[in-house]
């Protein structure tokens, strides 16, 4: 079995949501940094610090918009094997997670406001210890994965019950 990538539209969605963040969060924060920097110290040092903070914030967000999405698209991978789910993610800090199918409590599909125009969804996998997500999947694919996982969870639960019953009979 091979690792699958998220939907190609994910790159556009990431860019769009980050542009929104740039306009509504980062630029106002940068303006505040420049304003406070100038008002704290009158000798010009504060202004310089303010502009540096603002610059770092904006550059970081610009990188998030233009550079990171293609890398994230390559790094974000998932695998749904008969007995486990594997998720790989991260750019600098990579995480590889393995969830045995038998530990899944339930599966859910969620769709955020920004995901809706791109017909993307997120599959949430709930275990007794954590919640893991496979983000930015095509809604149809996400629903198909959700129902497939639900069936497998039911099969595994049935097998576990049969095994417990067999153990009980042996005793």
């Amino acid at each position: 079995m091979e690792f699958q990538r998220v939907d190609k539209k994910a790159k556009t969605k990431w860019r769009f949501s980050r542009i929104m963040a740039l306009i509504f969060v980062v630029l106002p924060l940068a303006a505040l940094a420049v304003f406070f920097g100038a008002s704290i110290a009158e000798d010009g040092a504060g202004t310089v610090v303010g502009w540096i903070v603002a610059g770092v914030l904006v550059v970081q967000q610009v990188l998030q918009i233009f550079l990171y999405p293609p890398i994230e698209y390559i790094q974000w991978q998932y695998l749904i094997a008969p007995d486990r789910i594997e998720i790989k993610k991260g750019i600098f800090y990579k995480t590889h997670t393995v969830i045995p199918i038998s530990r899944i409590q339930h599966v859910a599909v969620t769709q955020g406001v920004l995901q809706r125009p791109f017909r993307l969804s997120t599959v949430q996998i709930h275990t007794a210890g954590d919640v893991m997500e496979i983000q930015e999947l095509n809604t149809a694919v996400a629903e198909e994965i959700c129902s497939r996982l639900q069936k497998r969870v039911n099969v595994k639960a049935g097998q576990a019950l049969d095994a417990a019953a067999a153990d009980g009979r042996e005793e």
Partner: peptide, 14 residues
């Protein structure tokens, strides 16, 4: 009782 296992790495650790 183990629900999931995870390994995290960064650029230097890799």
């Amino acid at each position: 009782a183990v629900q999931e296992v995870q390994v995290n790495t960064d650029l230097i650790k890799r």
